[in-house]
């Protein structure tokens, strides 16, 4: 990978619920010698709550244009921000009329389609590459991991950068750091229920329960993931899921950047291991 500077779109949860993902992403890229320059004055992507595609496109054109001004590709740790940025980029590249309409709303929405929107997992595995990463591994992360991808890395087809049913990019990173992927392919891309959490918690909890219990049954020490909404559902809401079904799960949920960071020799505190809701002590004891 030749660029040493990338525009960073942290996404809203990076400041609060997904702090550890933000911290570990920054720490890992710093260690790899790539500067993540936070996009100044970035705005929310609209998440999945902005159902009108016109609104999503306008909101994300602004972020893309901010990156374009800096002539930097834009990278985000959130799979929903990624989906919204990537589909906006695609729509605007293909539609001159739409570009003109946006420019008319405000000059700052004038995106010409010269940068790429990427998810950090894509950058790590496909741009930086496993070969370069393997040269920097300082520590074997001796864990059994359930790789959980959720929805927006392999779907929908227009923005996907991994397989929709059996994605592999996280599996490859997990292998690279010396950890073991437990059999989990039937759950890898099943929705966590996050988008229904605030309106139909009963359904959302059932969806999360299936994933958490499958990871446990597969003998995983932890779940690895790459999306703050999945993190919220599987980690922060795990005690609520346990209470709703009167079960005990106690399954640590770790962002893939946190695991990679350990392998790169970064200290756990810098990777936010004290921020995950389900205690990560057991994980760290096994690794350190």
């Amino acid at each position: 990978m030749s660029e040493k500077k990338i525009a960073y779109h942290p996404g809203c949860p990076s400041a609060t619920t997904a702090m550890e993902q933000d911290m570990s992403t920054k720490a890992v890229f710093e260690k790899l010698g790539i500067e993540l320059e936070e996009l100044e004055d970035w705005n929310c992507c609209g998440a999945l709550e902005a159902e009108d595609p016109k609104l999503v496109i306008a909101l994300n054109a602004r972020n893309l244009a901010l990156a374009e001004k800096k002539r930097q590709d834009i990278v985000t740790p959130c799979s929903i921000c990624y989906y919204n940025l990537a589909r906006t980029d695609k729509a605007l590249r293909e539609d001159e009329k739409l570009r003109a309409e946006l420019k008319e709303i405000d000059g700052s929405l004038d995106y010409k389609g010269t940068v790429k929107a990427k998810h950090i997992l894509d950058v790590l595995v496909n741009d930086i590459g496993l070969a370069e990463l393997s040269g920097k591994i300082a520590k074997k992360v001796n864990l059994k991991v359930a790789p959980y991808y959720g929805c927006y890395l392999g779907r929908p087809p227009e923005t996907a950068f991994d397989d929709p049913d059996d994605p592999v990019l996280m599996d490859q990173l997990i292998e690279l750091i010396g950890a073991e992927n437990v059999p989990f392919s039937y759950m890898k891309t099943k929705c966590c229920g996050g988008p229904l959490m605030m309106t139909r918690a009963d359904i959302a909890f059932e969806m999360a329960r299936k994933i958490l219990e499958s990871a446990k049954k597969a003998g995983a020490d932890c779940i690895a993931l790459a999306c703050p909404l999945c993190g919220m559902m599987l980690d922060a809401k795990q005690p609520d899921v346990e209470a709703a079904f009167k079960i005990e799960i106690d399954m640590p949920v770790i962002y893939i950047t946190q695991l990679l960071g350990l392998a790169l020799g970064i200290e756990p505190k810098k990777l936010g291991f004290n921020k995950n809701i389900i205690d990560t002590k057991k994980i760290l004891e096994k690794v350190m």
Partner: peptide, 19 residues
């Protein structure tokens, strides 16, 4: 209509690209 989780599984698998 309101309990769809927007997970995109149907969109990804539809042989007719109904989205």
């Amino acid at each position: 209509l309101w309990i769809c989780a927007l997970c995109q599984t149907c969109t990804a698998r539809c042989p007719q690209d109904v989205m």
